[in-house]
């Protein structure tokens, strides 16, 4: 899925008075008007098609659409500022997601909201409840179930199952080992199924919480 993520393309992230710092173009590369225009067009062509992907991931991880829109704008500004380091042909989408998650962590830190916000980390256990037929659940029910998973797990499920990044790409985006990606994904998927089963029971789609589904 694309090339490797150009990790060195990420420069200082938005931070307090950072907006007064030099833009990347000032780090030895002067961006003249013609070059800047060309870079701008190239940036728009390469990066803007991924805006919806970034937005929906931010909205689900943050749980707030307004914050997600602000953050996505911030991500694009950061990406534009370091775009002169971006190598054409490398994985622009994964690079943007890496900036997104860097920004999300920064956003939480600024507000004293840390990724480990869950009151009780879900215990490791086998899924003992049946999963309802996916087609019988509405989008809202599925999203509500996803939102109940702790953020770390939710993020990995979103990146793997919705955005279809490989484990290696997710490890690069979240800056965690591949083994951690795999274990979080496994637990995240189990949690999602448990939540879906709970939703299904509450709507009468599933009659029991054990190993049989109505269908």
């Amino acid at each position: 899925m694309g090339g490797p993520i150009p990790t060195d393309a990420i420069i200082a992230m938005p931070d307090g008075d950072e907006q007064g710092q030099d833009e990347p173009a000032c780090a030895g590369v002067s961006r003249g008007p013609a070059i800047a225009e060309d870079a701008g067009s190239r940036f728009e062509a390469e990066a803007l098609p991924h805006l919806n992907d970034l937005y929906r991931t931010a909205a689900r991880v943050l749980g707030d659409r307004g914050e997600a829109e602000d953050l996505v704008q911030e991500v694009y500004l950061t990406a534009w500022k370091s775009f002169h380091r971006f190598e054409p042909g490398t994985n622009c989408r994964a690079w943007l997601f890496k900036i997104l998650f860097y920004s999300i962590n920064h956003h939480w830190r600024r507000r004293f909201r840390f990724p480990l916000l869950s009151d009780r980390e879900p215990a490791e256990r086998e899924v003992a409840c049946a999963t309802p037929l996916p087609e019988r659940l509405t989008d809202e029910e599925i999203l509500a179930a996803l939102d109940k998973a702790p953020r770390d797990f939710r993020a990995v499920v979103l990146l793997a199952d919705v955005e279809e990044f490989s484990y290696k790409e997710i490890a690069g985006i979240l800056n965690i080992p591949i083994g951690t990606v795999m274990s979080r994904l496994s637990r995240g998927r189990k949690l999602l199924r448990e939540q879906l089963a709970t939703v299904a029971q509450s709507y009468g789609i599933l009659k029991t919480n054990n190993k049989r589904s109505e269908a």
Binding site: N52, R60, E69, Q73, P134
Partner: peptide, 27 residues
């Protein structure tokens, strides 16, 4: 099938119409 339903549900969520334009204008 669960993955397909999850993907469809999440991907159904789109930003407000003006976001693309705002980002483009900022750049």
């Amino acid at each position: 099938r669960l993955r397909a339903r999850l993907k469809a549900a999440v991907r159904g969520e789109l930003p407000m119409p003006g976001l693309h334009d705002r980002v483009r204008a900022t750049i």
